[in-house]
């Protein structure tokens, strides 16, 4: 079950600068857990006790997982997840 995850520039310190990594899992939750196992630190940056942190957005393809089944959204081989954090800056 190979799921690709696009890592935002601000979190690439956790992936040794890799823009995209491949993980395993049958749900978004499992895929993110595998991401954290391979590149420790993601869990703290992405999740809190309510789920995905409020200023983080996780997309399966083009769909925000909040509008699917959240962390329990099933994923299948070849799916692609993207993490998009809220950012402020550019003055």
């Amino acid at each position: 079950m190979a799921i690709s995850i696009r890592i935002p520039a601000s979190l690439r310190t956790l992936t040794q600068a890799k823009e995209e990594v491949t993980v395993d899992g049958a749900t978004v939750r499992a895929a993110l857990a595998d991401l954290d196992a391979k590149f420790p630190g993601f869990k703290d940056r992405l999740l809190d006790d309510k789920g995905v942190k409020r200023f983080m957005n996780v997309y399966l393809g083009d769909e925000d997982i909040r509008f699917l089944d959240g962390l329990d959204t099933p994923v299948k081989d070849g799916d692609s997840l993207t993490i998009v954090p809220a950012i402020a800056g550019g003055r």
């Binding site: 601000s10 940056r45 942190k53 409020r54 200023f55 957005n57 954090p85 809220a86 950012i87 402020a88 800056g89 550019g90 003055r91």
Partner: peptide, 12 residues
């Protein structure tokens, strides 16, 4: 984006 981030959000 729901609400102001607490903690480690990215700003300039």
């Amino acid at each position: 984006f729901e609400d102001l981030p607490v903690g480690d959000a990215v700003d300039c």
